[in-house]
């Protein structure tokens, strides 16, 4: 907001030139994911129902709106990108069935490809480790994943005793996850679709 020292001529609320908006990302979503944002009614049922909206810097409805306004850059940097938990509540509620979790995924992919730093580094680390497991073994080895995550983030004892050990004794975490049979298949999928940097 302007303060008493800001010059009176500063462009804080410079008008958006509607006819200069770049709609290519909206088109890209339609072409690549079959999601048509023109069906959005701007009703806010998505963000009203979103399980994490209280910690979102940009709400689900605003994500849709900002794409339509061509403001994709701010979406690639937003915190919501990494606090969205893909719970699907928004799309379940949406009267137009707009698949916002898929949009979030797509945005994450673009951010990752373009090496835009994640605001929540741990979330990215977790994603990478988890996908690494799937690539290698075809499934996630939860115990090891948690250990590796703690090593990587330097928070060595996070969740180890509670709930880690508790879950272990209840048989919820299997330290020796059996390997999948057709591991080559999974690796092939990864080769075809990977966005890995470098």
């Amino acid at each position: 907001m302007p303060s008493s020292t800001t010059p009176m001529t500063a462009d804080f609320f410079k008008a958006i030139k509607l006819d200069e908006i770049d709609n290519s990302f909206q088109q890209e979503l339609l072409d690549n994911c079959g999601i048509d944002l023109n069906t959005c009614l701007e009703c806010g049922k998505c963000s009203g129902g979103c399980s994490n909206t209280h910690i979102f810097d940009i709400t689900a409805r605003q994500v849709v709106k900002l794409i339509k306004m061509g403001e994709v850059d701010s979406l690639l940097k937003m915190d919501s990108l990494w606090t969205c938990v893909s719970c699907q509540l928004c799309v379940d509620r949406c009267p137009a069935s707009i698949d916002i979790p898929r949009i979030m995924d797509y945005l994450r992919e673009v951010a990752y490809k373009n090496q835009i730093p994640a605001t929540r580094e741990q979330v990215l680390v977790f994603h990478e480790l988890m996908l690494g497991h799937i690539e290698k073994g075809g499934r996630v080895e939860e115990g090891f994943l948690a250990m590796e995550f703690n090593l990587k983030t330097g928070d060595y004892f996070k969740d180890v005793f509670d709930p880690g050990m508790k879950m272990f004794f209840k048989g919820k975490v299997n330290p020796f996850t059996p390997k999948m049979k057709k591991r080559d298949e999974t690796r092939r999928i990864f080769k075809m679709t990977s966005l890995r940097k470098g």
């Binding site: 009203g48 709400t59 605003q62």
Partner: peptide, 12 residues
């Protein structure tokens, strides 16, 4: 009741 005030952009 949970909703978003879409003019304010805040959960309500």
């Amino acid at each position: 009741i949970r909703a978003e005030d879409t003019l304010r952009g805040m959960p309500i």
